[in-house]
């Protein structure tokens, strides 16, 4: 796994476009929030820090982790690199972990940076362990959805189309839940992918919710992981279609 992760990291750093994207997401997110906080404090206050945190986290998860994971897997399959890796003694789980480890680590760093800026500028979260749990659960869910989507994606170019529904969908749900709460349509909002994770971030940031209720919110996210992994097991292909 680690030799593969190392080679992925090398490739990531050789690809300028990917590298720029990686820097732009956290910098732009932080700058946007600081601008909002300084220039239009009324809007910032109305949206709520928890909601903003949820949306910015999903921005990094959907735009960074999810799309990069799908693009990477499609591209490694298209040029037969996956087949090459599978002609060694490495197991399938080790190969996938190795390929996705660098982008996952980078995304978690991005999220940590953005949320730290948020905390420093606007005030810190009430429950840090809960926030960490929400971030990790979201990352696992996005990776699962990425694996499933990669099964439907023939090429890196194709990924620009196939990633749109989940990318836009999770971002929209996160915004919807983060900025409007779950008093209305609560069940629907929590069951949609990203909904309960966004609520968990809001709860962790603002505090006040009971621990039991919060932990219950992990369930839909983990259920999406199960769904995504089941879909991936059916749809993931290691070699291009002939």
């Amino acid at each position: 796994m680690f030799p593969i992760a190392r080679s992925e990291l090398i490739q990531l750093f050789r690809n300028r476009a990917v590298l720029v994207t990686m820097l732009v997401i956290p910098v732009a997110s932080s700058a946007m929030y600081i601008y909002l906080h300084e220039s239009v404090p009324a809007v910032s206050a109305a949206l709520g820090l928890g909601g903003i945190a949820a949306v910015l986290m999903f921005l990094a998860m959907a735009l960074g982790l999810y799309t990069t994971a799908v693009t990477t897997l499609a591209s490694r399959r298209q040029n037969l690199f996956l087949k090459r890796l599978r002609s060694t003694a490495a197991g399938d789980a080790g190969i996938l972990s190795g390929l996705l480890l660098p982008v996952t680590a980078i995304t978690l760093v991005q999220v940590a940076v953005v949320l730290t800026v948020l905390a420093v500028v606007g005030g810190g979260p009430a429950d840090v362990p809960l926030l960490v749990a929400a971030v990790l659960a979201t990352a696992v869910m996005m990776l699962g959805l990425g694996l499933a989507t990669a099964g439907l994606t023939n090429s890196p170019e194709h990924a620009q189309v196939t990633t749109l529904p989940v990318m836009v969908g999770t971002l929209a749900v996160a915004g919807w839940v983060g900025f409007t709460g779950t008093e209305e349509l609560g069940l629907l909002k929590r069951l949609l992918p990203g909904g309960s994770a966004a609520e968990l971030v809001v709860n962790a940031w603002t505090g006040g919710a009971s621990l039991g209720d919060s932990l219950l919110l992990l369930a839909p996210t983990l259920a999406w992981v199960v769904v995504a992994v089941a879909l991936a097991a059916r749809m993931f292909r290691w070699e291009p279609r002939r």
């Binding site: 490739q11 040029n79 037969l80 090459r84």
Partner: peptide
């Protein structure tokens, strides 16, 4: 067919 990463 080769199956090597072009960037390595």
């Amino acid at each position: 067919e080769s199956g090597f990463s072009p960037d390595l």
